[in-house]
C-alpha cells in the first residue's frame, strides 16, 4: 500500500509543480496585490478594498457586457456541440468515427489563425461581402458583419466548438443504449427519453463544455480587439490595459478576481439549476 502511495505522489509531482509554480503562485501573488495601492508607478502594500469598489463602480458596463457575451457564446457553442455530439453518438451509425475525426481535425490551426480567417470572411472585402455583391444583393460592401459583438460570438463559437464537442461526446458515449430502449418500452415518447434519460446522464459533459467555452470567452481579450470593434468592451481588454499601459497592477488584479468570482458564481448557479431541473423524481 505504501509503495502505491509513493508511486501516486511521484507521478503527480511534475504536473502539480507546473500547476503550482506557474498558475497557483502567480494567482496568489496577484490576489494579494489586488488589495494594494499604486502610487506614482510604485506598488504600496496595503489592505484596502478600494480597487474592488472602483471595479464595481466604474466597470459595471464592461462586466455586464462581458458576461452577457460569454453566456451567449457558452450557450450557442454548447448547444451546437451537443447537437453534433448527439448525431455522432446516436444517428450516424458507421460514420460516427469519421465525424469525430472531422471534429478533431478542426483543432488543427491556431487560435489567431482562425480569428484572422473570420476577419477575412466578415470584412469589408471579405468573402461574405464579395459574394453578396456578386449576387447583386448589395451594391457596396457593408460593415455590419465585422467589428461588433456578433463577430466575437461567431469567431469564438467557431473556435471553441470542437473543444466543446469532446466532453459531451464522452458523456453520451457512456450512455447504455438499452436504458433508452427501456424507457421507450415503458411508454416514454422520444422527447421524454431525451429529457429523462439522455440529458441527466450527460449533464456533466454539458456542464464541462459550457464551463470551458464560457470561461474562455469571459477571459478573452484578443478576439474582441481584432473583430469586436471599438464598442465591444470586454473586461479582458481593460485588464490588459491596466497591466500593460497604466501599470496599475492592483486595479487590474482586482478586475481579474472580480471576473473570476462572478464566473464561479454563474457556473455554480447554472450547475445547481441544471441539476435541480433534471433531478429524477
Amino acid at each position: 500500500m505504501k509503495s502505491y502511495r509513493a508511486t501516486t505522489i511521484s507521478l503527480l509531482i511534475p504536473s502539480f509543480s507546473i500547476f503550482g509554480f506557474i498558475f497557483v503562485a502567480p494567482l496568489l501573488y496577484f490576489f494579494v496585490v489586488s488589495f494594494w495601492r499604486k502610487k506614482r508607478f510604485q506598488l504600496i502594500p496595503d489592505a484596502t478594498i478600494t480597487n474592488y469598489v472602483q471595479v464595481l463602480e466604474e466597470y459595471t458596463r464592461p462586466l455586464w457586457f462581458t458576461f452577457g457575451v460569454a453566456t451567449i457564446i457558452g450557450l450557442v457553442t454548447t448547444i451546437l456541440a451537443f447537437v453534433f455530439a448527439y448525431v455522432i453518438r446516436f444517428k450516424s451509425g458507421r460514420y460516427s468515427l469519421h465525424l469525430l475525426f472531422l471534429v478533431l481535425i478542426t483543432l488543427f490551426g491556431g487560435y489567431l489563425t482562425k480569428i484572422y480567417v473570420w476577419k477575412t470572411i466578415l470584412g469589408q472585402t471579405g468573402i461574405l461581402n464579395t459574394a453578396l455583391m456578386m449576387l447583386n444583393i448589395i451594391d457596396e460592401p457593408i460593415m455590419m458583419f465585422l467589428f461588433n459583438p456578433m463577430a466575437v460570438v461567431i469567431s469564438l463559437a467557431h473556435y471553441m466548438l470542437p473543444l466543446a464537442v469532446l466532453p459531451i461526446y464522452g458523456a453520451l458515449r457512456s450512455i447504455d443504449e438499452t436504458s433508452l430502449r427501456g424507457a421507450l418500452d415503458l411508454g416514454a415518447s422520444r422527447f421524454r427519453v431525451f429529457w429523462d434519460i439522455v440529458l441527466p446522464q450527460c449533464q456533466m459533459g454539458i456542464m464541462a463544455a459550457f464551463t470551458l467555452t464560457f470561461l474562455f470567452a469571459a477571459g478573452d481579450w484578443v478576439t474582441p480587439k481584432l473583430v469586436g470593434g471599438p464598442y465591444t468592451s470586454m473586461i479582458g481588454t481593460f485588464i490588459q490595459y491596466q497591466y500593460g499601459s497604466r501599470f496599475n497592477q492592483p486595479l487590474g488584479s482586482a478586475m481579474a478576481f472580480t471576473v473570476i468570482a462572478i464566473s464561479l458564481l454563474i457556473l455554480v448557479t447554472i450547475a445547481l439549476v441544471g441539476k435541480r431541473i433534471l433531478k429524477p423524481r
Partner: peptide, 28 residues
C-alpha cells in the same frame, strides 16, 4: 414499443443509472 401492451426485461437490464431503485421501478 411505447404503444404496445408488452414490457421487456432486457439482457443488460437497461436500468436508469441516475435513478435509485424506486425511481427506476416507478418510471413507467
Amino acid at each position: 414499443p411505447e404503444r404496445r401492451p408488452t414490457n421487456m426485461v432486457f439482457q443488460g437490464y437497461g436500468l436508469f443509472p441516475h435513478m435509485n431503485v424506486r425511481q427506476n421501478v416507478a418510471y413507467g
